[in-house]
Design a protein around this nucleic acid. Structure first.
Length: 276
DNA sequence: CCCGATTCCTGTAGGC
DNA sequence: TGCCTACAGGAATCGG
């Protein structure tokens, strides 16, 4: 499922194939995504040129110029089963291939999303003013994210540290997989109340989150079932996972049996010996 | 404000 | 080669 590393992998994979290209045709096969595909998407995009791709949290931003879309931006979210791939003109769409952007030069940017938790939306205004982006916390790989911030925001909070770390107002892009892994690396019990964790331990947690996300990006993301990057390769981070999806199995560090609990309506696996 | 519960969706795994 | 159910989860939304 696409978390920050998977979205970043997608951005890097597709950028060289679509930046500077002109959109010649837009094919929408399914409009019923998390946000309905705008009716006039084709009218707005055909003839527009794609600028430099960026990522904010788990959103991909595709700026466009020219055509009927001067200054606009596509806001793309992959949900939990979405993927964007470059395919050649003529490659037949498969089930759940919902949107194609046909580009000059013979490539298609194809959006596939079986569970339809993702969306593609059109922003006329500047992206920072979109409410979905306006209230987001800092990027986990930026200087604005550190133990000091985690400590300051958590004082007085009784919520468990794992859902706290997954709160987009605290830090963006840390979903279930990487929150679980970061807490393991930092040796922190995911059930512990956020407000009762020391500054020192939050320093370790911030460093761990940073490290696990950076490593996952290097590995091309985590492919659990069917995630593929922009050019179709799976990610190889799965083999590095220490706790996510491993409940009942032995801890790689101490051998204790990994436990499963539910926190914030999410499965959470941890080592009862290494995480306190 | 804080926090937990609910909702969207479909492929897959597991029980029988 | 089957049927049924539980589960996966990002983020918006609601209720206490």
């Amino acid at each position: 499922m696409p978390e920050l590393p998977e979205v970043e992998t997608t951005r890097r994979g597709i950028a060289p194939h679509i930046e500077g290209r002109e959109i010649s045709e837009v094919i929408v096969r399914e409009t019923r995504l998390r946000v309905p595909v705008p009716n006039d998407l084709g009218e707005r995009l055909v003839g527009a040129r794609i600028g430099e791709l960026s990522r904010r949290a788990k959103y991909l931003l595709v700026p466009l110029s020219g055509g009927d879309a001067p200054g606009g931006t596509l806001l793309w979210h992959l949900g939990m089963s979405g993927s964007l791939r470059i395919v050649r003109v003529g490659e037949l769409p498969r089930k759940h291939d919902h949107v194609d952007l046909v580009l000059d030069g013979g490539a298609i940017l194809r959006y596939h999303d079986p569970r339809r938790f993702g969306f593609v939306d059109w922003l006329v205004d500047s992206p920072e003013r979109d409410p979905r982006l306006a209230r987001l916390g800092p990027e986990p790989l930026s200087d604005a994210f550190d133990g000091e911030r985690l400590f300051a925001l958590s004082r007085g909070r009784r919520v468990a540290v794992k859902p706290f770390l997954m709160d987009n107002a605290v830090v963006v892009g840390v979903g279930n997989i990487y929150a679980s892994e970061a807490l393991f690396m930092a040796g922190i019990d995911p059930r512990r109340a956020a407000g009762r964790i020391s500054r020192e331990r939050f320093d370790r947690l911030a460093a761990a989150a940073r490290e696990v996300l950076a490593a996952a990006i290097t590995q091309g993301g985590t492919t659990l079932r069917d995630f593929v990057g922009g050019t179709g390769e799976p990610g190889y981070f799965k083999q590095r996972l220490n706790v996510y999806g491993r409940h009942g199995q032995p801890c790689r560090r101490c051998g204790a049996e990994l436990r499963l609990v539910t926190l914030g309506q999410r499965a959470s696996v941890y080592c009862p010996h290494c995480q306190t």
